[in-house]
């Protein structure tokens, strides 16, 4: 079976999410290849060998500099057809979702999304899809090859294998419509402290904080735990906290060791972004908040009194 993982990169680094999928792909048996598309990315691509890729296909072209999906559809379609690739895996991101869907149309290939796992069962590849707000787990299959799979972010951690990869350069030709959209401007927010995607500890705040100032105590607790601050979409939309901290359907997906949800109701849009957390602690004054249905420990109470006290106790404990 030939499996290729689309490896996304940002500012010279391969993204943790797609490296995790590289590890996941290893479970299918057989060798796993990666593909890196961009401009000036050859060296970066070779680095995927350390995470389990035996071959890394690289297309290095100025037309691939901006992270736009359509020129990448052209390259992946050529790769799949020339090499007879049977399975292409993607980690969820804005770029990957558009790329995977464009490729599905181009190749008339089946795409399953929201996957949390993939395995070979009785010789067939089966994806596990979490559906209807995680109320049901669906086994999904593909009726032809190539198979395309888009995984939920954070479902697998990268595994360092210490190997090296053979780098194979791809020739690329682009279709006219693929180059029609143009990136005029890209701005990156400077975030202070650890990024929420990499943090082991996350303290998150929602509407229940009452006011933007409530994030002061959230930051204090995060600092005490050595973690990062996250926010719900509602408070980001209200301008209480920057978008870069937003967790959920339209924000980031995180899977820290500990997620402390403060004043967060736990609506499905938020849940999908943080349910991969190993341990979830919730503080909310509404006893009927959905967050209590999936928090390992839920405290029905006032965040304003509990959070500062918790910060104090954590500080004391850590000395």
């Amino acid at each position: 079976m030939s499996v290729v993982v689309f490896l996304e990169h940002h500012e010279g680094e391969l993204q943790k999410g797609s490296l995790g999928i590289l590890a996941k792909a290893g479970q299918l048996g057989g060798e796993v290849a990666g593909v890196v598309l961009g401009s000036g990315v050859e060296e970066l691509a070779a680095g995927a060998g350390r995470y389990g890729a035996s071959t890394v296909y690289v297309a290095d072209d100025a037309k691939l500099e901006a992270p736009l999906p359509q020129p990448r559809v052209d390259v992946l379609a050529q790769l799949v057809e020339e090499k007879g690739i049977e399975t292409v895996l993607f980690a969820q991101s804005i770029l990957s979702a558009d790329l995977a869907a464009g490729l599905a149309a181009r190749l008339d290939a089946g795409l399953n999304w929201q996957l949390v796992d993939i395995a070979t069962q009785d010789g067939a590849v089966v994806g596990k899809q979490s559906a209807l707000g995680d109320s049901v787990l669906v086994d999904v299959g593909w009726t032809s090859t190539p198979r395309l799979a888009l995984f939920r972010a954070g479902i697998a951690d990268p595994v360092e294998t210490g190997g090296t990869a053979t780098v194979e350069k791809l020739d690329v030709t682009f279709q006219e419509h693929s180059l029609a959209a143009e990136m005029l401007e890209q701005a990156h927010e400077e975030s202070s402290g650890p990024s929420i995607e990499d943090a082991d500890f996350i303290v998150a705040g929602g509407r229940g904080l009452g006011a933007p100032e409530g994030f002061g105590m959230i930051e204090e607790l995060a600092k005490a735990l050595g973690g990062a601050v996250a926010a719900t979409r509602a408070v980001v939309d209200a301008g209480w906290y920057p978008y870069s901290a937003q967790v959920g359907q339209t924000g980031k997906n995180v899977s820290p060791v500990l997620y402390v949800a403060c004043g967060i109701s736990g609506a499905i849009q938020h849940k999908v972004g943080m349910q991969g957390s190993k341990v979830i602690v919730a503080i909310n004054k509404d006893p009927n908040a959905p967050i209590f249905e999936f928090a390992d420990l839920g405290i029905v109470g006032d965040v304003q009194t509990i959070v500062p006290k918790l910060t104090e106790l954590v500080r004391a404990r850590k000395g």
Partner: peptide
């Protein structure tokens, strides 16, 4: 279509969840 649904099952439970009323010792 090129995809199919094979089976449905319940999602794995998250393990035990505990919900406590804050009696002043929540923290």
């Amino acid at each position: 279509s090129r995809t199919e649904v094979l089976a449905l099952s319940d999602p794995p439970p998250r393990g035990e969840t505990r919900k406590l009323e804050d009696d002043g010792t929540g923290a």
